[in-house]
Design a protein around this nucleic acid. Structure first.
Lengths: 198, 198
DNA sequence: GTCTATAGTCGGATAGAC
DNA sequence: GTCTATCCGACTATAGAC
């Protein structure tokens, strides 16, 4: 009986710890999270946590790297950018604004990575390398393949477009400004389209 | 001799504590900062800190509110937006990109406020109310007073422009992506100008 | 009004039983 | 391989001396 014997055991234990740790780190941040709470949330003892991960920092780094890869990839990558510019732009913007803005875990992940980026520069750069840069490159490539848009510097414009969308999520949702300075999602999208096409 | 008697005492003690606390909170975050270190950095005892501020949370909130008002106001407010659109835009963009990108304290402040925005929503909203919203309104008003720019929704476009600039600082400096995905500041500015004017 | 000293709690990490 | 029990340092906050 050294092999898995119940449904719960059949999930890898490190996965179980991982699942428990996500909620704690996302809610409390790195320094605010205790290994006691992580162990309790994962349903294992603290010693078990330390048998799978070297220390708190190791757990945190492994966790964020994995979240970045598996959970928070989604905006690009689920579909490729193809078709009419206006359609592609509206679909991209709508997806980014809607999906992220309503995903509390994604918002908490943004807070966590930005907040810890000074103390964990490796993690921030991993995010740049695996999510931000590929996203910019994909949109930039799309712009470059559509000369009718008359965009001189496609990468710079891609950064502006994504920046406009991310800043909207940042101010409205992350910093919770939507009641103080409300704006309809569609006004932003219409203006983005007008700047690029109209 | 109940009045100030040395140069050091002539500075208000709460100001002294404030100055010591800034560095600690900016570097370590809220949970990572200890009141022992704050007291040491301020050059007073811990009991003195607690006589001026109710507790750690009270000190933190007072501190961030004050930093937002006094230190990190600068981008707008130092000059009003007047003159030719291209000149105004380039000056605004250059100032925001140069000044903030090189100001390590400002970058740390951005990390802190974003990172704690989930646990301290009041502070995040104070920042929205006192810095973000006024900035957007000012640029929006400028656009509205220049119909030759043919901007249908001046506030939405203001958000896109500022978003493009803030996102640049966020990716290059805050998340430290400038070596991974470098881009000249002027390429972004030229493309912004081209989108709005060219 | 400001200090030193300390109470009381909780943190990360580990030893040893099973 | 996982648990319980524990070490010990650091934390927030305060009491009491001066």
């Amino acid at each position: 009986m050294t092999q898995p014997n119940t449904r719960k055991d059949s999930i890898d234990k490190s996965e179980q710890i991982f699942q428990g740790a996500i909620g704690e780190f996302l809610e409390k941040g790195y320094a605010g999270t205790s290994m006691d709470k992580v162990a309790a949330a994962a349903g294992v003892s603290k010693a078990t946590v330390y048998s799978y991960f070297q220390d708190k920092e190791g757990l945190f780094k492994a966790l964020v790297a994995r979240m970045a890869r598996e959970r928070f990839y989604l905006v690009f990558g689920t579909e490729s950018l193809q078709g009419e510019p206006e359609v592609v732009l509206r679909r991209l913007a709508t997806k980014l604004l809607d999906r992220i803005a309503r995903d509390r875990e994604y918002l908490a992940f943004m807070r966590l990575v930005v907040g810890e980026s000074g103390r964990f520069p490796d993690l921030a750069q991993e995010l740049i390398r695996n999510i931000v840069h590929p996203g910019i490159k994909e949109l930039s490539g799309y712009f470059a393949s559509h000369p009718e848009l008359k965009i001189a510097d496609s990468e710079a414009v891609a950064r502006i477009v994504i920046g406009g969308l991310v800043y909207f999520v940042l101010t409205q949702e992350v910093l919770q400004g939507k009641e103080i300075m409300p704006m309809e999602r569609d006004r932003l999208i219409d203006s983005l389209v007008a700047l690029l096409i109209g």
